[in-house]
């Protein structure tokens, strides 16, 4: 075993790492709650407290509609993506799907493809479908872009379910679909919720798709896009209000993260770290 000193040094390194990870986020929070005349000290320590900045960001930046729009988009993307991924993952793991290998192979493209590389034709496609500047323009492409991750995720997860479970269900006379909903899905619930979280995270935080696909409709603008426009438009203006806007955009995810961080982390690591 190693010495006590090494343990202390290791923990000090971890404390330093955690501080570096948290500092920018905390400094923006401090800035957001600071009065205009009472800005944080050079090291970011608070000197005053107010919620005015939030009120001004809420009204001036249209963040009420933006947060709602983000929620609608993210929840829709999650529900459809997870449903499709569960169906496909179950079939690929347990049913005799013809050409299962080639199907997974094609979906593999989606895992490594940078969507920045398809954004131009995607814009043309959405335009041709008459969906530009609509909520559908954000929801449908994001489903397509996240199903490959979802399918791989659920296929792996379903393969981990013990064979005895579906066999018992089929002896009891359950249909294929019933086996999925009554037996397999409950067994794979941790995997489903981690997938839901990770898809929610990506959908909520997306910026480029929103920038390109809903450029000029303030009603369907998502929160990150609204923040980008707001921060860009008021560059010379009050940085405290921008900070408050950033906090508003980050807050819903941070709350979910604090509650469900285990699932989040396993999701972000692609299941590479098993709990």
């Amino acid at each position: 075993m190693r010495s006590r000193g090494e343990s202390v040094i290791s923990h000090l390194i971890l404390v330093l790492g955690a501080a570096i990870a948290l500092y920018p986020a905390l400094s923006i929070l401090v800035l957001a709650v600071s009065e205009r005349g009472g800005r944080p000290s050079p090291l970011g320590m608070p000197r005053s407290f107010t919620l005015d900045n939030f009120a001004r960001a809420w009204e001036g930046g249209g963040f009420d509609t933006a947060l709602l729009s983000s929620a609608v988009v993210a929840v829709s993307v999650v529900v459809v993506t997870v449903t499709l991924s569960v169906l496909t993952g179950y079939a690929l793991a347990w049913l005799r799907v013809p050409m299962a290998g080639p199907i997974l192979g094609v979906l593999l493209i989606g895992l490594v493809l940078p969507y920045e590389g398809v954004i131009v034709p995607l814009h043309s496609l959405v335009k041709d479908l008459g969906m530009i500047n609509t909520t559908a323009a954000l929801i449908l492409p994001q489903i397509g872009l996240s199903v490959s991750l979802g399918v791989f995720w659920m296929t792996t997860y379903f393969r981990g379910v013990p064979r005895s479970l579906p066999e018992a269900a089929s002896i009891d006379g359950a249909s294929r679909f019933q086996t999925l909903t009554k037996v397999m899905l409950p067994a794979a619930l941790p995997g489903v919720s981690a997938l839901a979280l990770i898809v929610f995270l990506y959908a909520w935080n997306d910026f480029l798709l929103a920038l390109v696909l809903v450029p000029d409709n303030a009603d369907v603008r998502t929160a990150p896009l609204a923040l980008s426009f707001f921060a860009g438009n008021v560059k010379g203006a009050d940085i405290g209000v921008t900070a408050a806007a950033a906090v508003l955009v980050a807050l819903p995810l941070v709350v979910v993260y604090v509650v469900l961080q285990r699932s989040f982390i396993s999701g972000l690591l692609g299941g590479a770290v098993k709990e």
Partner: peptide, 11 residues
């Protein structure tokens, strides 16, 4: 340590 991962790039 994971906090930077959950924030939007814009934030």
């Amino acid at each position: 340590l994971f906090v930077p991962q959950i924030l939007s790039g814009v934030v």
